[in-house]
Simulated assay, not measured.
Amino acid sequence: MKFFHLSDMHIGKQLHRYSLKEDQEAILWEITDYAWKIHPDAIVIAGDIYDKSTPSAEAVTIFDRFLTGLAEITPKIPILIISGNHDSAERLQYASEILKKNHIYMAGSVPETEGERIRKVILKDEEGEVDFYLLPFMKPSYVRNVFRDNPPESYSEAVKRIIERENIDYDTRRNVLVSHQFYVGDGGEAPKTCDSEVCSVGGIDQVDTAGVAGFDYVALGHLHGAQKVGSEKIRYCGTPLKYSVSECGHHKTLTVVTLKSKKDVLQIEELPLHPIRDVRKKTGTLEEILAGAREEEREDYVSITLTDEIDPYKPREQLERVYSHVLEIRVDNQRTRKKLEETEEEPEVKDPFSAFEDFYREMQGKDMSEEEKKVMEQIFDEVKGE
């Protein structure tokens, strides 16, 4: 069973003030071209299709064209899609039964009642059947009604228990989980993250990989850097494009997974992706950066750090004559470093509820009443999934 593992396309996203429409269309077309040439047995998309839960009409059109392009390939390639934390489960799951007839399987929501189960798609190859379990992004509160008597208190427990209900045959059948969460390895070893990702303070959203270790492959979405989590078979494929300056060192690829028999070793291949524009960092004096500008970089997205000790004349205007997509201009010299050292203080880290208490006091000129505190405590517990 050979399949593409994609995630975190974030269609509709902007990089600073620049639209990525052209860049996203080009990279999705390259993925479609790979699908025509390789013709995988399936294409798995592990969440965060869109960058916002209410995507623009333009973003929806881009994704529609991508699916249409894939659907034109014959024989038909099954496409398996789950929602991520940036997606709207209801919007993404719209017309799912119609799409199923065209071999496009959508899972927008996790089970929410005792009678519901994780959506399972069974595909076949020469070795037999493979069970794909589609588990969208979830919080403990999403499955509270599934476990009425003893609801899960943590993300890790919620994922583990919702999977355990499926009575999966790990011994004789090949199983693939598609999931969109923040997974950590044995001993709480966290994967590498980027500035473009948001992870909860204190790690309340962490999910232990022990709960998914029985699967033959776990196709993850959520983190933007391609990487394994403790095991080769538990992987983030990363984004197809660079979505922040912190990702400038990434090499974006298309992950191709080959799952043979239960006895054979899993095969992972990473095919290169070629964006229209790269994301780069440049550091130096204004004169050095201007003189060092290579022709092939001039259309790229560029973050610039100037080290001039004396402020240069109209640096942005000069830089924009050379680079067409300047993301930001920072200054790092002895003067700015000294100023930071003089003003730097150790920040006081407070829990969210205490921080809100301080905010309320500053805005209202008084403390919260006991009744107001109870209301806010309920809200914070709901956010944390408790």
Rank of each mutant, 00 (worst) to 15 (best):
V176L: 02
S354T: 14
E270A: 12
S246Q: 04
S154Y: 04
D351A: 09
V130Y: 01
D169Q: 06
I77A: 06
D208T: 01
E270R: 13
S56W: 01
T193N: 07
L15M: 06
A71G: 12
P75Y: 03
I77D: 01
D308N: 13
E296P: 03
L340D: 12
A35K: 03
A42S: 10
L99Q: 11
K373C: 13
T283A: 11
F63T: 04
Q364W: 09
G214V: 03
P240G: 10
R316Y: 14
V146N: 04
G12V: 02
E25F: 00
H5F: 09
K124P: 08
R65W: 07
G202Y: 01
N150D: 15
A71V: 04
R316N: 12
F182W: 02
L271H: 08
H103V: 04
A46Y: 00
E357I: 13
H86Q: 12
K124N: 08
N333C: 02
R173W: 04
V331H: 10
I38G: 08
K37M: 09
E97P: 06
P152R: 12
R173S: 15
D51Y: 01
Q364M: 15
K76A: 15
L340G: 09
R280D: 02
E270D: 13
A291H: 14
E126D: 14
E320R: 08
Q206M: 11
K101T: 08
A46W: 00
L177P: 05
G84I: 03
G211R: 01
A59T: 06
I31R: 01
T74A: 11
V198I: 14
I122E: 15
V349L: 11
S369R: 10
V146D: 06
L28A: 05
D8C: 07
S246H: 05
R119N: 11
K192W: 00
V110R: 01
L15N: 10
D311K: 14
E58G: 05
Q14V: 09
K262F: 04
Y323K: 07
E197G: 07
S156E: 04
L241N: 00
L6E: 02
T307P: 09
L99N: 10
K2R: 15
I304D: 04
T113C: 07
P140N: 00
T343W: 09
E299W: 08
T285V: 01
L290S: 02
S96K: 15
K21H: 14
S261D: 05
E58Y: 01
Y18T: 11
S369V: 11
R298W: 07
I304T: 12
N333A: 02
I268A: 00
L266A: 09
E320H: 03
P272C: 05
T74W: 06
P275T: 06
Q93N: 15
I11K: 08
I49W: 02
S244T: 04
D195F: 07
V256D: 00
M368V: 10
A293I: 04
Y105V: 04
V218R: 01
M138Y: 02
D23I: 07
R119W: 12
F132L: 06
H251L: 12
A107H: 06
A89V: 09
V178G: 06
A59W: 02
C237E: 00
K160P: 00
E116G: 07
D8K: 02
V302F: 02
V110Y: 05
